[in-house]
Amino acid sequence: MIDLGDDYEVIGVLGQGSFGSVWKIRRLEDGLFFACKSVVYSGMDQQHKEQLVTEVNVMRDLQHPHIVRYIDRHVDKKNGTLHIILELCQGGDLAKKIRDRKRQGRLFSEERIWQLLREAALALNDCHAKHLIHRDLKPANLLFGQDDQLKIADFGLCKELKARDALARTKLGTPLYMAPELVQYKPYGASVDLWSLGCVAHETAALAPPFDEKNAEELKVAILSHSIRNHIPSSYSQLLKTTISKLLHPNPKARLSAADLLSTCNQFLLEKLDCVTSSWSQQQLLSFIQERKSNLDDREKLLDRRERNLDERERKLILREKAENSILVSKTRQTSRTWTQAADQENNFLQKEAESTKRRRRA
């Protein structure tokens, strides 16, 4: 069991991985639930420690409705563990949803796939605008929060570039979703995330990844030769198949960007809305718009409440930090006074000893 001090109560384990464990926790001051990713850093080399620091800094700075929200961190120096406290996504991950659909023999609706693509594109567009590459997009890292909205998680392998068109060189990621330029150890940019998203979209539609060879060498050959094993069912539109194909373009310069993908998703969803609403009466259309507006108003109020909670928590953290600094200053002054008193005593002793020596010599 992890120790988070007096601020949180540990409810139970949500999952485990090579990095450590994820726990469900409750904040005692307001009863809200969160996820806690616990990473043991004591045995890490310097490179992995730096990557862990990067993950925390990136998560703290990213504020987007389709990225898992950073809440706080807690360092357990005694056990060499960093606890990263994050938004709790109760809807599970896309990997489990795909497994469930495959077991049931039920495909995802096309509208749902477009919705997932759009939400992922919104998040990636924000990341790439800030020169960040995720580098490990896969179904297990796509979680679902309130209203079944997609949230990108796990920035443990993310890379911050100096500019939008800069390139990275380190080979990282999950092999099944790795772009050709990564497989070939070539310099790469943000387009590797779009390739990974293309693999995810293909897997969501076909209920199987596009490349699923059994060993690393066969997988590398399949990716480089673009030998897709599991094809997308014919029930899906040509537009969806073409869009996924453009995401899986071997040439990163010809691959869709996040902004391009977002534009295509919006085009499909607007056309779908036009088809649905064309047969509606004016009253039905008005009711639909009012319902959407009400939902948006509710979500805006929820965001306002969260913002106020964050402001209040930040205020308390600042007050706590000031109190700790005050105690530290007080202890420093007390220590300084103690040292001064000790020095004065020593000087007095030396002075008395010198005077005593002089008197003995005169005698």
Rank of each mutant, 00 (worst) to 15 (best):
K97S: 03
E50F: 05
K37N: 04
Q90N: 06
G80V: 07
H48I: 11
M44W: 10
K78P: 01
D45K: 11
R101S: 10
L94C: 02
G80Q: 09
L86T: 04
Q63G: 03
D72P: 00
H74Y: 15
T54P: 01
M44D: 12
G92H: 13
R106E: 12
I67T: 06
G92C: 07
K97Q: 08
H64S: 08
C36S: 10
R69K: 14
K102P: 00
L86V: 09
Y41I: 06
H66E: 12
K77E: 14
I85M: 10
T54G: 07
V58G: 01
L94A: 10
I98L: 03
D61M: 08
V75Q: 09
N57G: 09
D93I: 09
Q46G: 03
M59L: 15
V75Y: 08
K37V: 05
D100N: 07
Y41E: 01
R73C: 13
I71D: 07
R106C: 11
L52G: 00
G105A: 11
M59H: 02
Q90T: 12
H66D: 13
I67S: 01
E50P: 01
Y41T: 01
S38C: 12
I85P: 00
K97P: 00
R69Y: 12
Q90L: 06
M44G: 05
K37E: 06
Q90W: 03
D100H: 07
K78D: 14
V39D: 02
R60F: 05
Q104K: 13
V75L: 15
V40H: 12
K37I: 03
R73S: 15
R73H: 15
Q63M: 10
H83L: 04
L52M: 15
K49R: 12
C89Q: 04
R101Q: 04
G92S: 11
R103Q: 06
G105H: 13
A95V: 01
Q51F: 15
I71M: 12
R99T: 08
A35C: 07
D61R: 15
L52C: 12
K97H: 05
A95G: 01
V53C: 10
L62K: 02
Q47V: 07
R73Q: 13
H64R: 06
H48L: 11
I67G: 00
C89T: 04
Q63P: 03
Q51C: 13
H64G: 03
I98P: 00
V58C: 05
Q104Y: 09
E55F: 05
Q63S: 11
V75K: 09
V40F: 08
L88W: 02
K102W: 03
C89D: 03
K77W: 09
H74R: 06
D45H: 10
I71H: 11
R99I: 07
Y70M: 14
P65D: 13
K77L: 13
E55V: 03
I84M: 07
K102L: 07
V75A: 10
H83R: 02
V75N: 07
K77I: 14
T54Q: 14
Q51V: 11
K77A: 15
L94E: 02
N57E: 13
G80N: 11
I85G: 00
Y70P: 02
Q104E: 10
